[in-house]
């Protein structure tokens, strides 16, 4: 799995951080998404898919 984020689409809801804090973080300034790891291990992949599905800005892309 390869994850990418689009900071311009991010609206700082923080739901990705709540879903998978191992993969997503937020900028201290404006809460915009920061990607911690683009190739999450298998045990986190389901949570990453959930995060992508609930992201209100559709800022998270997942390539399987």
């Amino acid at each position: 799995m390869r994850v990418s984020v689009d900071p311009d689409r991010c609206c700082s809801s923080g739901q990705c951080v709540m879903a998978v804090p191992e993969v997503f973080d937020q900028s201290e300034d404006d809460g915009v998404v920061l990607l911690i790891q683009a190739r999450p291990p298998a045990e986190l992949q389901s949570a990453v898919r959930t995060a992508a599905g609930i992201c209100p800005g559709r800022a998270i892309s997942v390539q399987e």
Partner: peptide, 14 residues
């Protein structure tokens, strides 16, 4: 305007 406030509501700060 929104991004002037989003920093106050990031998960860690909340």
């Amino acid at each position: 305007f929104r991004r002037m406030l989003t920093g106050d509501f990031i998960i860690k700060r909340v």
